[in-house]
Lab assay of single mutants.
Amino acid sequence: KDKDLLKGLDQEQANEVIAVLQMHNIEANKIDSGKLGYSITVAEPDFTAAVYWIK
């Protein structure tokens, strides 16, 4: 199951987060929520590491 990592990002921010996570071998998903911006989700086992790397 995926957990929400970040919400309300613009496309550039979302792409930067995806890139950082991929560099650390964390699979992440970018979801277009329309006017609400983009959300990033990661698998539950990767959540703690993902939070660490996006600081």
Rank of each mutant, 00 (worst) to 15 (best):
F47R: 03
I26Q: 00
E16C: 15
V20W: 15
G8S: 04
E44T: 08
D4F: 15
E12M: 10
S33F: 15
S39H: 06
T41L: 08
L36C: 14
E44L: 10
T48R: 12
Q22S: 12
F47K: 02
G37M: 07
M23R: 12
V51Q: 13
K7E: 08
N15F: 09
G34W: 05
I26W: 02
K7F: 12
L36I: 06
S39V: 12
M23G: 07
K55S: 12
L9F: 03
K1N: 10
M23Q: 09
V17P: 00
E16H: 14
E27A: 14
D2V: 14
A49V: 06
L9V: 04
A50Y: 04
D10P: 06
V42H: 01
V42D: 01
L9I: 07
A28S: 06
Q11W: 13
D46K: 04
K3C: 14
D32Y: 14
K35Y: 11
I18Q: 03
P45Y: 14
I54L: 12
G37T: 08
E27P: 13
A49Y: 07
T41M: 09
D10E: 05
D46L: 08
V51N: 08
S39D: 08
K1E: 08
Y38D: 00
V20G: 03
S39E: 05
L36T: 09
S39Y: 09
M23F: 10
I40F: 02
Y38E: 00
V51E: 11
E12H: 11
T41V: 10
N25T: 04
K1M: 10
K3F: 09
G37V: 08
K30D: 01
S39N: 09
K7P: 02
L5E: 02
P45L: 13
Y52W: 08
N15W: 08
A43W: 06
K35C: 12
D2A: 13
V17F: 10
I31T: 06
I31K: 08
F47L: 05
L9S: 02
E27G: 09
A14L: 04
A19I: 08
L21Q: 02
S33R: 15
A49P: 03
V17D: 00
V17E: 00
H24V: 05
Q13R: 11
K3E: 05
K30W: 08
D4T: 15
L21C: 03
L9Q: 01
D10H: 06
W53F: 07
I54G: 01
K35Q: 10
D32F: 14
F47S: 01
N29A: 09
W53G: 00
E44V: 09
G37N: 03
V51Y: 11
S39P: 00
G8H: 08
N29M: 11
Q11K: 10
G8P: 01
A19Y: 11
G8Y: 10
I31A: 04
V20D: 03
D10Y: 05
I31F: 07
K35R: 11
A28N: 02
S39C: 10
E44R: 06
A28H: 05
D2G: 11
S39L: 10
H24C: 10
M23I: 08
T48Q: 13
D4V: 15
N25E: 05
I54E: 01
K35F: 10
A49C: 15
V17K: 02
P45M: 14
I26G: 02
G8R: 04
K30T: 07
Y52T: 05
I18F: 08
G8D: 05
I18D: 01
K55M: 14
H24N: 05
L9D: 02
T41Q: 09
N29W: 13
I40P: 00
K30N: 03
V20P: 00
Q22V: 08
H24R: 05
V17N: 01
P45C: 13
D4N: 12
I54P: 00
H24E: 01
D46P: 01
D46E: 05
E27L: 13
I40G: 01
Y52C: 11
K35S: 11
E27M: 15
L6W: 05
L9H: 01
L36K: 10
I18M: 10
G8T: 03
K55F: 14
V42T: 02
K30Y: 07
I54Q: 02
T41C: 09
E16P: 01
N29Q: 12
H24P: 00
V51A: 10
G34N: 04
F47P: 00
M23E: 08
G34A: 04
E16M: 14
L21V: 01
W53T: 03
K55E: 13
L21D: 00
Q11F: 14
F47D: 00
P45E: 15
I40C: 03
G8V: 03
K7G: 10
K55V: 12
K55Q: 13
V42E: 02
K55Y: 12
A49K: 10
E27C: 13
I31L: 06
E44H: 06
S39M: 11
A50P: 00
D32V: 06
E12G: 08
T48E: 14
L5H: 01
M23H: 09
D32M: 09
Q11V: 11
Y52V: 05
D10S: 15
A49N: 09
S33L: 15
G34H: 04
D10N: 13
V42M: 02
Y38A: 01
V20Q: 07
N15G: 04
L5Y: 03
D46S: 05
A43E: 05
E44D: 08
D32R: 09
Q13A: 11
A43V: 04
I40R: 00
A14M: 04
V51S: 09
K1L: 10
A19K: 13
L21A: 00
N29Y: 11
T48D: 14
G34E: 04
P45V: 14
G34C: 06
G8I: 03
K30P: 03
V17T: 04
D2E: 11
K30A: 12
G34D: 04
E16V: 11
A49R: 12
L6I: 11
Y52H: 08
E27Y: 14
I54Y: 05
D10T: 15
I31N: 06
H24W: 06
G37A: 04
D32W: 14
H24S: 02
L9P: 00
L9W: 02
I31S: 04
Y52A: 06
A14P: 00
A50D: 01
I26P: 00
V42P: 00
A14W: 03
A28I: 04
F47G: 02
L36P: 03
N29V: 11
Q13L: 07
E12W: 12
Y52N: 06
G8C: 13
N25V: 03
T48W: 15
K35M: 10
L21N: 01
A28V: 05
L21W: 02
E16I: 13
Q22Y: 11
V20K: 07
K30R: 08
E12P: 04
I26R: 01
L9G: 02
T48C: 15
G34K: 04
K55H: 12
N15L: 09
A50E: 01
D10G: 08
I54H: 02
G37Q: 05
A19H: 09
K30M: 14
V20F: 15
A43S: 10
P45W: 14
K3W: 10
I31E: 04
P45R: 15
L36G: 13
L21M: 03
I18W: 07
I40M: 01
D32E: 07
T41Y: 10
D2I: 14
L21F: 02
S33I: 09
E44K: 06
F47V: 04
L5A: 02
Q13D: 05
T48M: 13
F47N: 01
V42S: 01
H24Q: 05
N15Q: 08
N15P: 01
A43H: 08
I54V: 08
H24G: 03
K7A: 10
V51I: 12
E27R: 15
V17M: 10
E44A: 11
D32L: 11
A19G: 06
N15E: 10
V17A: 07
N15S: 07
A19P: 01
S39G: 06
M23Y: 10
S39I: 13
Y52G: 05
